[in-house]
């Protein structure tokens, strides 16, 4: 299996250079293989979101090496990181962050639109297919603000898949949902993982869901336990 991601000695400190400088991640080594479905667990404040943001190229580590798809990201500038992020990583956040000014379908089109600059038929068709895949065809033209939490999260999953990324990062995607919706969202991710071989890294506090993942990575006090 190909390696999607490799972390070597990743450290992250906040407030660098000030008296309140604190190191949150103390040297994390991690390797994720293509097609993995991983749970990232750990107590609150242990640094899970921090780690996910670094992996997702939203934040830079203070030290260490992060290799994504064979690219050593430490050497890349801001623009290159943005491009790599758009093309290889999909995000699903806890608070189903759809853009309320757009419809569900348009939200799914958005990553492709951002990448190509202009709308076209192909991206519209692809977005419609993804919406269909997450079972929301009937809601495609609804504004994001008119949908339930579970529905929004399913749209967010469809959106995360829009650019056909190797890796989907999900930070507590079910954390804000009732058990029933949480189960549906988790099941959807798992199915997509099996169907398409998309790699998932999911932060969760739910041991029941974590057990059903391929592997559980425990983060305790900024280290992989």
């Amino acid at each position: 299996m190909a390696e999607v991601l490799r972390l070597e000695g990743i450290r992250k400190s906040y407030n660098v250079g000030t008296p309140v400088e604190t190191e949150v991640l103390h040297g994390i080594d991690l390797s994720i293989q293509s097609g993995d479905f991983l749970a990232l667990m750990g107590p609150s404040g242990s640094g899970k979101s921090t780690l996910l943001n670094i992996i997702g190229l939203l934040d830079r580590p203070t030290a260490g090496k992060l290799v994504i798809d064979g690219h050593d990201t430490g050497a890349l500038g801001d623009a290159a990181l943005t491009k790599l992020r758009g093309q290889t990583i999909g995000f699903v956040f806890q608070y189903h962050y759809l853009i309320s000014a757009f419809t569900a379908l348009e939200n799914v089109m958005m990553p492709m639109l951002v990448d190509r600059g202009h709308p076209d038929d192909e991206m519209q068709a692809r977005a419609a297919a993804l919406i269909d895949r997450v079972g929301l065809s009937r809601w495609a033209n609804n504004s994001a603000s008119n949908m339930s939490g579970g529905q929004q999260q399913r749209v967010a999953i469809a959106r995360a898949l829009a650019m056909n990324p190797n890796l989907v990062l999900a930070d507590e995607p079910t954390g804000n949902l009732d058990t029933h919706s949480a189960e549906a969202v988790f099941a959807l991710m798992r199915e997509i993982n099996r169907e398409r071989g998309t790699t998932f890294l999911m932060v969760t506090h739910n041991p029941g869901l974590a057990e059903r993942c391929d592997r559980i990575i425990e983060v305790v006090d900024g280290k992989v336990a």
């Binding site: 939203l58 801001d78 623009a79 943005t82 992020r85 999909g90 990553p111 951002v114 650019m163």
Partner: peptide, 16 residues
């Protein structure tokens, strides 16, 4: 700001 953050996360460039 949340919309902007999510747009940035999905690969929107600063100039955009």
């Amino acid at each position: 700001s949340k919309d902007i953050g999510i747009l940035r996360a999905m690969g929107t460039r600063r100039e955009q």
